[in-house]
């Protein structure tokens, strides 16, 4: 990465992003500057385009085939829709966590280093290197102490909360810059939600985190900036403290107060 971008405080910058599913337009002129190393939440009623936006930041939307995107999305100063961009590199640098934890049917250890192996080609990775990666990633997601004695057990045996932490852990060994999270706690119970939120909070600083949520309390607790979207447009983008206390826009205020949702 060029050093000029490395000092920039903006991790994701979009200009005039419009997106269509077939003939249906899902995003309208989205202009956003998402700060580096912080947690930004996206809220808004169902169908407002927040998940669509999230999915266009690592270009998985395209897999549907009938999606058309215009405008530009720059991540760390690089246009990820430029013609010479390699999708594999995009997915490597921009990790994604899903609503439903989806660990692979492999051991805990193999799950953590799966992405690392995929990006290492044919190189034989020394066992010590793998062990270090596994420990460091699991420590970062606060899972090491719970699973260190059963790293060879199937990941699918873990609780949902642990599975979701593992899904975050497996992104870390390839050193992503951005973590996208699509309602990462909505399949978890309150205790699991709290634990995962706590984890996300700890990861800020090292990673730029963009988190879509239906849960306004969660946005308020676990994010530093907040974006409110409605019908495919960005209505308001402000520090979380401000947007929840003194929203500038009436629609934001109405949504936050629960008048529609």
């Amino acid at each position: 990465m060029a050093s000029a971008e490395a000092v920039s405080d903006i991790a994701i910058e979009t200009r005039q992003v419009n997106l269509w599913y077939g003939t249906f337009q899902a995003l309208f002129d989205v202009d956003l500057q998402i700060p580096r190393g912080r947690i930004t939440s996206m809220i808004g009623p169902s169908g407002c385009g927040k998940t669509t936006f999230l999915r266009s930041v690592n270009r998985i939307n395209e897999r549907l085939g009938y999606v058309r995107t215009t405008g530009s999305i720059e991540v760390l100063g690089y246009d990820i829709y430029a013609p010479d961009v390699e999708l594999v590199q995009v997915r490597k640098r921009i990790g994604m966590v899903f609503q439903r934890p989806n660990p692979l049917p492999l051991s805990i250890r193999d799950n953590v280093v799966f992405g690392y192996r995929v990006h290492s080609g044919r190189r034989k990775i020394p066992q010590t290197e793998l062990d270090e990666l596994v420990e460091s990633a699991l420590r970062q997601v606060l899972l090491w102490d719970t699973v260190k004695d059963r790293l060879d057990r199937q990941a699918t045996e873990l609780s949902l909360e642990e599975q979701q932490k593992l899904c975050i852990a497996r992104l870390l060994p390839v050193k992503p810059a951005v973590l996208l999270m699509d309602e990462p706690c909505s399949a978890l119970d309150p205790k699991g939600t709290e634990a995962v939120e706590e984890l996300i909070w700890q990861l800020r600083g090292d990673y730029t985190i963009l988190i879509v949520t239906h849960n306004m309390a969660q946005a308020r607790r676990a994010s530093e900036e907040c974006i409110f979207m409605l019908l495919g447009k960005v209505v308001e983008h402000a520090p979380t403290d401000e947007i929840f206390v003194t929203p500038r826009n009436q629609e934001t205020a109405d949504y936050i107060e629960g008048r529609y949702g």
């Binding site: 594999v88 692979l104 492999l106 992405g115």
Partner: peptide, 21 residues
């Protein structure tokens, strides 16, 4: 399908996904 999604989103190719998962 979730297994494939998980692999693709980590940047695995179709073949890597087939072979490993």
């Amino acid at each position: 399908q979730a297994f494939r999604e998980a692999c693709w989103n980590m940047g695995a190719t179709r073949w890597q996904t087939i072979r490993r998962v």
